[in-house]
């Protein structure tokens, strides 16, 4: 059932992309194929595959329980928040927060998660920024370094 649903959505998506791809036109023909044919070919093949799955989805896939879905949603939200706050808050703070929340999601206890969050933020920053030379954002701590 879910495979069928996904295939149907994907079929629609292919159609939309095909409309967009139709507009790919080079102002001057550099080669006989042009930028349009290949994406359209792929989209056509994908559409055939999706259509096949709409009619013959194969074995049913089991669905997540409501609780598992909630947890997955929370996890995605946490990751997104981490990504968005990565630059403004800086690596140390955002990592400590994300580690703490993710730790709780993965059934850790409050105090150990808090400790591991702070440790990971500080230690990994030191490891990447100083030892491995990967530049990371300082964010809110920038002012401290400047002064």
């Amino acid at each position: 059932m879910y495979v069928r649903l996904f295939a149907a959505i994907w079929l629609l998506f292919c159609a939309c992309l095909a409309v967009i791809a139709w507009g790919f036109q080079a102002p001057f023909a550099y080669d006989p194929v042009g930028p349009r044919a290949y994406p359209l070919l792929l989209l056509a093949l994908m559409a055939v595959g999706s259509a096949w799955l709409v009619f013959k989805p194969g074995e049913a896939v089991e669905m997540l329980s409501r609780r598992a879905l909630q947890r997955a949603g929370l996890c995605i939200l946490t990751l997104l928040a981490y990504a968005v706050l990565f630059e403004p808050l800086g690596f140390i703070l955002s990592t400590a927060l994300a580690t703490f929340v993710l730790g709780l999601l993965f059934t850790g206890r409050v105090l150990p998660c808090l400790v591991s969050g702070v440790l990971m933020g500080v230690l990994l920053y030191a490891l990447f920024d100083y030892a491995l030379d990967v530049p990371l954002p300082l964010g809110v701590f920038e002012a401290l370094v400047e002064s």
């Binding site: 990751l79 981490y82 990504a83 990565f86 690596f91 990592t95 994300a98 580690t99 993710l102 730790g103 709780l104 993965f106 059934t107 850790g108 150990p112 998660c113 591991s116 969050g117 990971m120 990994l124 990447f128 990967v134 990371l136």
Partner: peptide, 15 residues
């Protein structure tokens, strides 16, 4: 335990 492992994977991926 996963509550240490998963955040570590996340952070390394982000970096």
């Amino acid at each position: 335990p996963n509550w240490v492992l998963v955040p570590a994977i996340t952070v390394i991926s982000m970096v």
